[in-house]
Amino acid sequence: MILSGKAFRFGDNVSTDVHLSVKYRSPDTTLQVLMRDAFKDIDPAFSASVRQGDVVVAGENFGLVSSRADAAVVLRELGISCVLARSFGHMFYRNAINMGLPVIECDTDSISAGDKVEVDPETGAIQTGGGEIRFAPYPPSLLKIIAAGGLIPFIQKEGGYPS
């Protein structure tokens, strides 16, 4: 599985309140509305310009604070193929993989907005214009969760983790 697209670049501490602001929410807010408003406060053009396969690249603590699984679903549904960051908020990291969105901890300093990025979760390599970035590859069971589209679909399809 090679994930490839254009980099959208964000800084440190982008909390789920920024990329999925509660101020645009009400109990009947639809996924479409959340997708339209994603990152609105820091990149108003984001949802209009993102294309299938594009990659979100951030600094420290991406997705900090909230435990809302919507935060990962919105990015996945917008076509984001993976999120690269120096570190993640705990619940966002878990929710993302459980919702089938690959999230990868790595050194993102050399990646700029608009760079073409190719990510291989199996081998742990990221190709950018400026060279290769390495990360700890996903173990087989995690690759299967991602391929199935999330934790629950994975169990439905595979019956459980390989023993």
Binding site: R94, N98, G150, I155
Partner: peptide, 16 residues
């Protein structure tokens, strides 16, 4: 853990 993870542990007895 979140609710989906709880459901997954009912089904597998394991978690990542």
């Amino acid at each position: 853990v979140e609710s989906g993870e709880t459901a997954s542990v009912f089904a597998t007895g394991k978690l990542w």
